[in-house]
Design a protein around this nucleic acid. Structure first.
Lengths: 206, 206
DNA sequence: GTCTATATAGTGATAGAC
DNA sequence: GTCTATCACTATATAGAC
């Protein structure tokens, strides 16, 4: 349990939950304070501005997500097994946190400043560039061995991200428009996991 | 040109542009009025509430999108040609209106009332149910003839939508995070169009 | 470190004059 | 039909007491 009695941390944790659930614009510092059980002034005392509080949480989440992606690339399995376990890991991580994809997308789309910040702090970071090169090298190797059909690594990445991320983004629509229960929604996600693996496998077949 | 001097329509057109660009929450009726060149009171005179103005625009857009989808299903081509021209049509329509996917998603995700409204007015509408049945029938027919591998129609639909929609949703990230020019972004979309067609074709191979 | 009180600004909506 | 004026509300942020 992270029920730290440190006020600074409690504010951060509550803010994270609310930002996740409602997004930045729809969450007020007053609401955060009320949920924490302190006054709004205290939120500003520790983080000065709402944007500042948000940015710390946002970047922490991006970092955690990139860590999962980086970790998935470290696999020593056969390529086929590697693709399967990577996609599986992405799904399992997001099942724990189904609102993360929409949260990140919304805040990146609606705020160009955050995209700029992300580019400066992550895209230009050699660690993450290395992830891509590693993926690229592995893909080329498989291609030359004739085990997969030729495909651009960036295209493959976009395709996997599209299929994984959209599954989670579309959940509220799936649930409400088709009147599905929580249980059915969960089954849908597990089903899509298998389906996405199947699609990517077939797509890579020579 | 739609530069109607009818105030009611001018307000609607300006509101549409702003809602598309900024979303519902970030657009004020004051801003709409300023852009039109009238007072905020007039916006409320014609549409009473901001939500009301928005809903008219939103539902009109959904209807237009569904019309494109319905139209794509009317094709008399061979199944392979049909898949290609349908995906191609979705891309071409969204190239004309790249913000539509995010706009619709954002407003549906952030507002459960709108999902409810959409379910009552569209999902329950027999016309749209018929589209799905038609698609289902055609798919089964191709399967039985052994021309495509067995696949659930709903899965195929979700997969196509994921790949098409995510392309447009990810454009701001593609552009800013990788520092791409408008020209490069356009090329990327055209490239993804071909790639998505290729993926779906391969996925359907027996 | 935490509170109360308030400055400042923006919003959606309406009443009423012309 | 269009305007001015204003109400009721909510928001972020800060000053100052304890």
């Amino acid at each position: 349990m992270n029920t730290n009695d440190n006020m600074e941390m409690r504010i951060r944790e509550v803010a994270q939950q609310l930002f996740f659930k409602q997004g930045y614009a729809a969450t007020s510092t007053i609401q955060i304070a009320k949920e924490v059980g302190c006054t709004q002034a205290l939120v500003h005392y520790y983080y000065r501005t709402k944007e500042n509080l948000f940015r710390q949480i946002f970047m922490e989440q991006i970092q955690a997500a990139l860590r999962v992606i980086g970790q998935s690339l470290m696999s020593e399995d056969s390529f086929d097994k590697f693709i399967e376990s990577a996609i599986s890991m992405y799904f399992d991580t997001l099942i724990q946190n189904p609102r993360l994809p929409y949260f990140v997308l919304e805040e990146l789309i609606s705020n160009p400043e955050r995209r700029k910040y992300l580019r400066e702090n992550f895209v230009k970071n050699p660690t993450y560039a290395m992830f891509y090169l590693q993926f690229d090298a592995r893909l080329k190797q498989e291609q030359q061995a004739g085990r997969i059909s030729p495909i651009d690594p960036f295209d493959l990445m976009i395709t996997i991200v599209s299929l994984v991320v959209f599954t989670f983004i579309s959940l509220p629509m799936y649930q409400d428009l088709l009147s599905r229960t929580d249980e059915q929604v969960h089954e849908f996600v597990l089903h899509r996991k298998e389906e996405v693996i199947r699609i990517v496998r077939k797509m890579l077949m020579p």
